[in-house]
Computed example of a mutant assay.
Amino acid sequence: MANIVDSAAKAGNLTRLLQALEVTELIETLKNPGPFTVFAPTDEAFEKLSEETRDALQDPIKLKRIIAHHIAFGDVRKEDLLQTDEVTTFENSVIAVDASSEGIKLNNANVVAPEIVVDNGVIYLIDQVLFPALVLSE
């Protein structure tokens, strides 16, 4: 198996996330043994953002907070998500988890593919970019 970074590169639809990880210098962190859980917005999720929000992502400090909000310590599997109502992120904020018969929602984002288990954790593809509270208004 590969690590999170290598697996994200092979996925083909996570190029914007990988670029953001590179800019924020979090890419090396996700090559470490971990384990980590990454809630990975697809390229399509980034494309849904408004122009104003995309402009805000040019600020490296805000971008790092936003990207860190998509990473959790530990190997959080689907079974774990089904038994909790929140996950604490690398950025030290919380993502709400709502598991129902329709699937798993993380805040307002839907998990759009089965978990991808890798050597140093797990990746979930999601259809929206998650934002920690107040990050865009700062």
Rank of each mutant, 00 (worst) to 15 (best):
Asn107Val: 00
Gly34Asp: 12
Asp98His: 15
Leu136Asn: 04
Ala9Tyr: 07
Phe73Lys: 14
Pro132Val: 01
Pro35Arg: 10
Leu49Ile: 02
Ile4Val: 09
Pro132Ile: 02
Ile95Val: 12
Ile95Gly: 06
Glu102Val: 04
Lys31Glu: 14
Leu18Thr: 07
Pro33Glu: 04
Phe131Gln: 02
Thr24Leu: 08
Arg54Trp: 11
His70Tyr: 10
Val38Leu: 07
Glu52Ser: 12
Glu28Trp: 03
Phe36Arg: 07
Phe73Pro: 03
Ile61Phe: 10
Ala56Glu: 13
Ile104Pro: 09
Thr37Asn: 12
Leu57Ala: 14
Pro35Glu: 03
Val23Ile: 15
Phe131Val: 08
Ser93Ala: 12
Glu91Cys: 04
Asn108Ala: 05
Lys105Ile: 01
Ala8Tyr: 00
Met1Ala: 15
Asp6Tyr: 05
Phe39Glu: 09
Ala20Ser: 13
Leu30His: 09
Ala133His: 06
Glu44Asn: 07
Glu138Tyr: 08
Ala40His: 01
Val87Phe: 02
Glu44Phe: 02
Glu25His: 14
Ala40Lys: 00
Ala45Met: 02
Glu47Trp: 02
His70Cys: 07
Leu81Lys: 01
Glu115Lys: 14
Val38His: 11
Asn108Arg: 06
Gly34His: 14
Ala96Trp: 04
Arg65Asp: 11
Pro33Leu: 05
Ala68Glu: 10
Thr53Tyr: 03
Asn3Tyr: 06
His69Trp: 05
Thr84Ile: 12
Ile4Ala: 06
Ser100Ala: 11
Val38Asn: 08
Ser50Val: 00
Phe90Trp: 09
Ile126Arg: 03
Asn3Leu: 12
Asn107Gln: 03
Pro114Ala: 14
Val117Phe: 09
Glu44Met: 02
Glu44Tyr: 10
Val122Ala: 06
Thr15Leu: 05
Ala96Phe: 04
Leu14Phe: 07
Pro35Val: 00
Pro35Gln: 05
Lys10Gln: 12
Thr15Asp: 05
Asn107Glu: 07
Asn108Ile: 00
Gly74Asp: 04
Val112Asp: 11
Gly121Lys: 10
Val23Asn: 15
Arg77Pro: 00
Lys105Met: 15
Arg77Ile: 02
Leu82Thr: 05
Leu57Gln: 11
Ile116Gly: 12
Val23Gln: 15
Ala45Ser: 08
Leu49Arg: 07
Lys62Arg: 15
Leu81Glu: 03
Met1Leu: 15
Lys48Ile: 01
Thr24Lys: 13
Lys31Ile: 00
Glu44Trp: 00
Thr37Val: 08
Asn108Leu: 03
Ile4Tyr: 08
Ala113Phe: 15
Glu115Ile: 00
Lys105Leu: 08
Asp119Asn: 14
Leu21Ser: 04
Asp43Ser: 04
Glu115Ser: 15
Ala2Glu: 12
Glu44Asp: 13
Phe36Glu: 03
Thr24Glu: 13
Ser7Gln: 14
Val111Ser: 10
Val23Tyr: 05
Val5Pro: 02
Glu86Pro: 00
Leu26Gly: 05
Val118Met: 09
Phe46Ala: 10
Arg65Trp: 12
Ser50Lys: 05
Ala68Asp: 08
Lys48Val: 04
Asp59His: 11
Thr42Val: 01
Glu51Ala: 13
Asn108Trp: 01
Ala109Ser: 11
Ile27Arg: 06
Pro35Met: 08
Val135Asp: 02
Asn32His: 06
Leu49Gly: 09
Phe73Ser: 09
Gly74Cys: 04
Ser93Met: 03
Val122Cys: 13
Leu30Ser: 10
Glu102Asp: 13
Ile71Arg: 10
Asn13Cys: 06
Ile61Glu: 13
Val117Ala: 15
Thr53Leu: 07
